[in-house]
């Protein structure tokens, strides 16, 4: 057996001498597997390679930052948020905390829409606009005479439940959400382009009218929700029609549309998570190959703990896919 092996080895060496490519092919394997003679990890796990992966990720992050300035609306945050779900989850939280449910009010809803549209138009993300307009100005602009009023904002989320959960995790937003000072609420879920990214802004406005008799009835709330749902459908239909029309110039300026699910060309969250998974997965797989091949061949290398590296990478990838969710509250 060993004679056969040594004969085969000689043949291989003979082949190599004849054909340089065979040596290259033999060496190529060690980009992925540990080297038996040099007692080192695969070339693609070398220090230089790790530096290269870090640099590549920095470059990709830079591209994702630059692209929206050159091609606005290509990158964005996919979302499927509805006013009905936001209202339901908000009232569930209030009920669980022994508070009365809030009723959807038309004026507060209009005020929330005006605020969201103003944020897209003037490209800001704040409670007070760069021109000094405060949330109360939008509420008063809808002739809503209040004793108490409040505002919560959210952007880049993809689920209604996550929005309410994020507000509940933040002390100041939680205070608004669970305040006994409010009787009514208004929501705006508006899609548009902010800082070059297609996104969805959520505005939540709270209020207690000076005249208690003005509190919205169940009937008013239901008709508002119906209106909200039908406007989403109308917008979707309008977008489809616009897509088939040719030769008409698109209107310049900020684009904002109410409520239908936002589906950008490239969902930036999925894209960045995939980049991380590809790099992390690639390094993790090479490390696993390293363990398998070293055991098989009985190789002992003077390196760090491969198993610890694999464990940490697995934890990082799991955190990225199952824990990190997009969305910011203000």
């Amino acid at each position: 057996m060993s004679v056969l092996k040594s004969r085969r080895k000689k043949e291989v060496v003979k082949d190599w001498r004849k054909e340089n490519r065979a040596i290259e092919k033999y060496q190529f394997v060690y980009h992925f597997l540990p080297h038996p003679e040099e007692k080192r990890r695969a070339t693609l796990l070398s220090h230089k390679a790790i530096i290269l992966y870090c640099a590549a990720m920095l470059v990709i992050a830079g591209i994702f930052r630059l692209l929206p300035t050159m091609m606005p609306g290509v990158l964005g945050y996919a979302s499927d948020i509805s006013v009905k779900d936001l209202l339901t989850y908000t009232n569930i939280q209030r009920k669980e905390n022994g508070l009365s449910e809030l009723r959807l009010n038309e004026s507060l809803t209009s005020a929330a829409h005006a605020k969201a549209e103003d944020m897209f138009k003037n490209q800001y993300w704040a409670h007070v606009s760069p021109g000094g307009t405060e949330p109360w100005d939008f509420i008063l602009g809808q002739d809503y005479d209040y004793i108490y009023a409040g505002e919560n904002l959210a952007k880049n989320f993809n689920k209604s439940k996550d929005v309410v959960e994020a507000w509940m995790k933040s002390p100041s937003h939680r205070e608004n959400l669970l305040s006994s000072n409010y009787d009514e609420i208004g929501f705006a879920v508006v899609n548009g382009v902010m800082d070059g990214y297609e996104t969805t802004l959520v505005v939540q406005m709270f209020g207690r009218p000076r005249n208690a008799a003005q509190i919205a009835s169940v009937y008013e709330e239901e008709s508002l929700l119906e209106k909200e749902a039908s406007s989403s459908a109308a917008v979707t239909q309008r977008e489809e029609t616009a897509g088939t029309e040719t030769g008409q110039e698109a209107e310049q300026g900020p684009v904002y549309t109410p409520a239908p699910p936002a589906e950008p060309l490239v969902d930036v969250t999925t894209a960045t998570k995939s980049v991380s998974a590809v790099f992390g997965g690639f390094v993790g797989t090479l490390l696993a190959l390293d363990v398998w091949h070293s055991r098989r061949k009985g190789l002992r290398k003077f390196t760090g703990h491969t198993a610890a590296h694999i464990g940490v990478l697995l934890l990082v990838i799991a955190s990225i896919w199952f824990v990190l969710t997009p969305g910011i509250v203000l």
């Binding site: 990709i60 992050a61 930036v268 969250t269 980049v275 990082v316 990225i320 990190l324």
Partner: peptide, 10 residues
């Protein structure tokens, strides 16, 4: 970097 590239855009 694996975590930061995602955190930068969420």
């Amino acid at each position: 970097f694996l975590l930061y590239i995602v955190l930068n855009f969420v």
